[in-house]
Design a protein around this nucleic acid. Structure first.
Lengths: 207, 207, 207, 207
DNA sequence: AATGAATGAGGGTTCATTCAT
DNA sequence: AATGAATGAACCCTCATTCAT
């Protein structure tokens, strides 16, 4: 069920695509397998042949995105930090965002489903926290340590720092792409600059 | 349907309480009116006599909390700012949080339902944005202007500032009370101090 | 339950009126007591205080009309025939129609309910056939005998004659007042004349 | 939903049969889909898979009979009249009845349902009047014209003539097969003879 | 591998009726 | 006499899932 995209048949892909679209639009519980089958132009039985149950379909939908969103951070970003490809913490944040921007935009519906459904599926939550949240959190912590050691960021509680950074970025993504996409937003990289600036320098004027 | 709590009968309260608990636990779509009736120790028909439909029940559950969460900000906080009861921006944020802390803790399930269901109910979203979101956003903007005029916070884009503050606070609430309440957290007011400190001074050391 | 109209309270009348209107419009089974209560501006419980059950209400609605429609025929028409107030069979038919015209027009909804519901309520059917249908049929038969004896109508099977007359009149009422009231009809008494003419002289030309 | 009988599966036929029986016996509104399912020995869901809704089932029940009852009149009877297969108006009526006798007897329950439900389902009424009633009425009118031109029937208003004939036949069918089938009826063709005789010669003796 | 007819449990909702007030 | 809150059975319908083809 942890399908690598390459091994999927046309029908399987059609089902997954339809499921993503509908789960994101109406929520998992409010989407019927019948609707999915229709949108995927597939018989209802076919869904169950491939994914065993509706829940299995949900997991198959979410699994690959978790991996793809998280893995590069652990593999690449960390190394780039250690190899001094990111000289400053700001560079790191900008780089991290830049690397995921396209992926996130393409997979917004998936992210939405993940965020929506995690509270209702303990296995999902557990899997996410244990295998992914912790790992990424650890990596992030090491990165914070790294820049703290270099004296680039202050000696505050790393947890709070991480939450602050994550909160700033996520609240931006949520506001821009999900909550009020209809507002007139500036160019994306400018918005990101503003966030990074504020994050690093705070809200109070420097003397 | 916009019930003042005082006018509710025992049964109505029992239904609302049961609904809140179950909606928060399993989500709106995955909760059956049958379950609600059982938990409220009421006949299923009674629910529909009072709330017309399952969706009507959802609205009746969410309406009062929206009002109670938002109204005081507009009425009280703003005045306190103008009356210099909050000397600094930090004081304002601390005061605002302090005033809502109890309410939020008592109504966490309701907040959760609101956040979970808003994406799937356009009327809800509209009502929230139009009648509440805009008003509170305007107020907040005035407050930012006020402190910017006093030179207490930098001249950055107010939207970004607001998102930053809100993001920091919400990510704390989410992390502490919903996502990983099982982590070992420090005393709440200390955590709040850390957030405010970081928000105002930023992540980079002041020389 | 066989209420004489005089003894009814305001509420009872309101209930009966509302019931008549709704039963006629949507049918007995498809009308809810709740609707009746609302239209009668009465509490739902009140209906059951007075009429015991929904079916009881139906019977209370239909009982008086059966009596009023049928009784005069037995009491008056027959005597008029015997007293030679109706010289010919045609006079009799015209008189009978004339006497009931107003009543029927005013009570079309009731007639409709009666016709609609009789097939589904054996007691109703039985009561109608036993106590009313037979009596009126007997009377009618005597009348046919009377005019046959006078040589005014042919010696055919009285049953067939009665059915023919009744069929002609009813199909006119149905067509004009229920099935296609929107067609452009001639003046009512002219239509009646045509029916009587055709009934008595038949479809074939008299040489 | 306008099913040709041939294309129906066993289950579909069973459902339709059960529905006809129950609708005729208790009326559409008073028949539950649960009952139909049980009588058809089918799961309740199956009904809705095939007929979409209870109302859809009603339409599927009635549609084919409307067609089958009416179509032959337009196609065959008219031609027979023109081809002088029916020399007299009486022949025509007798032929028309004869041709439909079996069908009507087999489909009495269906006729009953049609008559009972038409008043409560505007689409049904409309469909019947527009697509069927008008067509058959026009045909019938042409036939009356035809025989009037030949001098076989009098020059009265064709509408009245049609209503008279239809009323006579229908009141016979209603009386014999629905209202009081328990009465002791003569042989059917004799009854028909009597009706035709009365229709053509009227109630008054020809000197 | 794929279908879609069939299932029956359970969904939200309405119902006639009761009963304390 | 009148109310209307409360009931729970029954309503129509949808659901995820199965299975013969």
């Amino acid at each position: 069920m942890g399908n690598d995209e390459e091994k999927l048949t046309e029908k399987q892909k059609a089902i997954l695509d339809a499921a993503v679209e509908l789960f994101a639009e109406k929520g998992f519980a409010a989407t019927s397998t019948n609707e999915i089958a229709k949108k995927a132009e597939v018989a209802e039985g076919t869904i169950f042949k491939h994914f065993k149950s509706k829940k299995g379909l949900l997991l198959s939908v979410l699994s690959p995105m978790m991996v793809k969103l998280i893995a590069p951070m652990i593999k690449n970003d960390m190394n780039k930090v250690l190899d001094r490809d990111f000289e400053t913490f700001q560079d790191f944040i900008r780089g991290m965002i830049e690397n995921r921007k396209e992926f996130i935009k393409k997979n917004l519906p998936l992210l939405r489903i993940l965020v929506q459904e995690i509270p209702f599926h303990p296995e999902l939550k557990e899997r996410f926290i244990e295998h992914i949240g912790k790992e990424i959190f650890d990596k992030f912590r090491q990165i914070v340590d790294h820049y703290q050691a270099k004296g680039q960021i202050i000696e505050a509680d790393p947890n709070t720092i991480i939450r602050m950074v994550a909160g700033a970025i996520l609240s931006y993504i949520l506001a821009r792409h999900i909550a009020i996409p209809e507002a007139n937003w500036e160019d994306e990289s400018k918005e990101i600059d503003k966030i990074i600036e504020l994050l690093s320098n705070g809200l109070m004027p420097r003397e």
